Amino acid sequence: MASLSEEQRAAVLEAARRPGATRNGVARETGVSEGSVTSICTTAGISFDRSATAAAVQARVIDLKAARLGLATSMLDDVQVARQRMHGADGNRDFLDGAKAVAALAGTHVRLVAVDKDDATGTEAAKSMLGSLAAALGVAAAEGVEEAAGDGTV
């Protein structure tokens, strides 16, 4: 900022005082860096309207939330496919691999949904669901191992 002339500072302040001026717009117009524009304007008590930026950020947040919801929904479809493959498995090892895939996909779904929960009860519900799923998969896995031990294959 020390290397800027008084004319450059005056040009920055003049551009910044125009209605609708943005920091980046002033920087482009005057050829002064964004950081220098910020420093000059802060010193002069000029601030920029950030409502457009706030609106853009809010729109992006909404877009990302929708994308996460779409992905979470797809994960449920993948859970169904993995469950069908698991139950159609020829051997115990394939069944256990399928059970692991179901658990991973269901866990991913729960984490995606939990990102957008506004209250702590959603987190607790997700933990409870994951705990129940893990317990059920443990029982299924134990049954699969017992069956394998009975027929001599593991």
Rank of each mutant, 00 (worst) to 15 (best):
M75Q: 07
V154Y: 14
R93Q: 14
G20T: 10
T73W: 08
V12K: 00
A136P: 05
L112C: 08
K65P: 08
L96A: 13
D77S: 11
D97P: 07
A106Y: 14
I46N: 01
T153H: 13
A140C: 11
V115H: 02
N92K: 07
G88H: 02
C41K: 00
M75D: 09
E143W: 10
G122N: 01
G70Q: 15
G20P: 09
T153R: 10
A44V: 02
L105D: 06
F48V: 07
G25L: 03
A114N: 06
E29V: 06
K117D: 12
A101D: 15
G70Y: 11
G131L: 10
E34V: 15
A15K: 01
D94L: 07
S132M: 05
A148R: 03
A27K: 01
V81E: 12
G150Q: 04
D118Y: 03
E143D: 13
A16T: 02
S47D: 05
A134P: 02
G131C: 15
I40N: 00
V12H: 00
C41D: 05
N24T: 13
G20M: 06
E146Q: 14
R17Q: 09
R60C: 12
S33Y: 00
T38G: 09
V154Q: 13
K127E: 14
S3E: 12
F48I: 04
T38V: 08
R9A: 05
L96C: 13
A11S: 10
A27W: 01
T153W: 07
A15D: 04
T73K: 08
G138F: 03
E6D: 15
A114W: 03
K100C: 11
A104H: 08
K127A: 15
